[in-house]
């Protein structure tokens, strides 16, 4: 464990909590892509199946339980409890265009052709594109609530910090996982446009609206 990975996990946890609180407090999931939330929930479920087979540490197991429960709770709030506020007309990204290629790729490019490893690989590839429905929805509505932009900031930051963690681990431990690194790069690059808008607009107190 190193500071960048810990900071990444904290940033990820903050993002998940921000979103959950936003929906719960405002009793509304306006501007939130339910499709992205479903993708994130499946990312966690497919990646953390080892929760029942391998014990790494209390931290590792508890974070996995928190991520899985919060992401499923968020999907529940969006599609059931606050369904009336779900903006389905703008949440129209065709997720099958993500899931099918990602599913195929995880069978072709993986570290080990075993069920657990293929599910882990699927989860890694899926996470790298899971935010696309959310970014697509923002481009369609042309704006995002400020709290939503903070959610996206911490969510994008987390994998960026993991990239630094992987540089650290390669340098000090000689460890590297090319699948996670390439997917993490793609994932972080997808946020670049948003990061630019976040820094130049939201941090200056303006609302995030597109076109920029």
């Amino acid at each position: 464990m190193n500071i960048f990975r810990l900071a990444g996990d904290v940033s990820h946890l903050v993002a998940i909590i921000i979103l959950l609180l936003k929906i719960w407090k405002t009793r509304s999931c306006a501007g939130i892509s339910g499709k992205s939330q479903i993708l994130f929930a499946s990312v966690f479920v497919t990646r953390y199946l080892d929760l029942f087979t391998i014990f790494i540490s209390l931290y590792n197991s508890s974070m996995k339980i928190i991520y899985i429960s919060c992401s499923i709770a968020t999907v529940y709030l969006v599609y059931f409890k606050f369904k009336a506020t779900y903006d389905g007309n703008h949440d129209t990204f065709r997720v099958e265009f993500l899931v099918v290629p990602v599913g195929g790729l995880s069978f072709l490019v993986n570290h080990d052709f075993s069920p657990m490893e293929i599910l882990w690989t699927f989860s890694i590839y899926l996470e790298s594109v899971a935010i696309l429905p959310q970014l697509f929805m923002i481009s369609k509505t042309g704006e995002a609530e400020t709290i939503t932009t903070h959610y996206l900031f911490f969510l994008g930051l987390y994998r960026g910090l993991y990239l630094i963690n992987w540089i650290w681990r390669y340098y000090f431990e000689g460890f590297f996982d090319l699948i996670a690194i390439v997917a993490g790069l793609v994932q972080t690059v997808l946020y670049c446009d948003f990061f630019y808008l976040y820094v130049t607009k939201v941090l200056k107190g303006k609302k995030l609206s597109l076109p920029a």
Binding site: R5, D9, H12, D50, I54, I56, N60, M63, K64, Y67, N110, H111, D112, S114, M116, E117, W120, Y162, N165, F175, F176, D177, A180
Partner: peptide
């Protein structure tokens, strides 16, 4: 190259 299934990261 890490053996497949020893993923210790979240």
């Amino acid at each position: 190259k890490p053996k497949g299934n020893n993923h210790d990261e979240l």
